[in-house]
Amino acid sequence: MYRYHFRAQCRENIDLERLFREALPVLQIRMKEFGACHLSLFHFGTQLFLYYESPAQTADPHELFAHCEDALETWPGTDKPRRWVPMMDIFHYQQPINENHWLRKNASARPYARIAHLKPDKVASYVFYHYQYQEEKPGDGDKYGMIALHENLMFFYSEDPATVDKPSYSGKLSTSNTPSDWAGTMEPHFIPWDQPAEHSRIWLEIPLIIRA
């Protein structure tokens, strides 16, 4: 089972909810054709954050959203025009072993997502600490929770209620160096959001547009 994360930029003055609600029936057909599942699309303003899974190693979002991608801006950086840019997995609580291991046991669990900005000079440190944590304490949080990175913007996908169980594999590290004061160690890495005091200044929860 492969996990996919992508980022896109919608054109101005587009009704995102209407666009993707109307696109959903065709999207569901394309998902069956290309073997994609557990798809969730979130947004922050005109920015889009996409998560889905597939047993196929090549499940291209451009195929899934071909019928509505004219509403998306084109990103530079490759020979062919692209609307979706991949985000890199920099942390996961568990990794899929096989399809059976990855089956959802709680049908009521709902996807949710948060985003955060890293200070550019803290990206390497953040990745280092998270790889260490991931490999020293696999299964320490939501089984389906993971963080993906594009530039210095992070997309944290998870499900609520969380599924917490012990994985059938061991981490790649036998050390125990994960800081005990995790929150205190992480705080200097972030560019804070300008939010009311009752909300997190680090992680900003973003709304779900569609799930399929």
Rank of each mutant, 00 (worst) to 15 (best):
Q134C: 09
C68S: 01
S180A: 14
R21T: 14
E63L: 11
L149S: 06
T175W: 07
W203C: 09
V164D: 04
D194C: 08
M87Y: 08
F44N: 12
H5W: 07
F44I: 08
A23C: 06
P120H: 03
T78S: 15
K105W: 11
A107H: 09
T163I: 13
D89G: 06
R18T: 11
N106A: 14
L118K: 00
P96K: 03
L153N: 07
W182Y: 09
D15M: 02
P179Y: 06
H38D: 06
S54E: 00
A116Y: 01
Y133L: 12
A113Y: 01
L50I: 04
E135W: 11
D60G: 05
H62F: 08
P196A: 11
M31I: 02
E136H: 08
L27W: 01
G145A: 14
R21G: 12
R104N: 13
M88D: 13
L39G: 10
Q47K: 13
D70G: 07
I202C: 07
V123T: 14
Y51T: 08
I90P: 01
N13K: 09
C68I: 12
Y4F: 13
F91M: 12
W182G: 11
L19R: 02
I115N: 00
N98L: 04
H92E: 02
R201S: 14
F155V: 02
H130S: 06
E33H: 10
K137P: 11
F128P: 02
Y2F: 15
T58E: 15
N152Q: 09
R82P: 09
T178Q: 03
M1V: 10
S108C: 12
A23W: 02
H92P: 00
D160V: 13
N100Y: 12
D165S: 12
F155A: 07
S125V: 13
Y126N: 13
P76H: 07
Q95Y: 14
Y144P: 04
P61H: 06
L50S: 03
G171K: 06
G45C: 03
F6P: 05
I29D: 13
E135Y: 05
G45E: 04
K137T: 02
N177G: 12
V26Q: 11
W182Q: 06
E136T: 09
D165A: 09
L39I: 00
K143P: 07
A212G: 03
N152H: 15
S200T: 00
R30I: 02
N106W: 12
F65P: 03
D181M: 09
R18H: 10
E69Q: 10
H62N: 10
F20P: 09
E33N: 14
R201T: 05
P161G: 10
K143L: 15
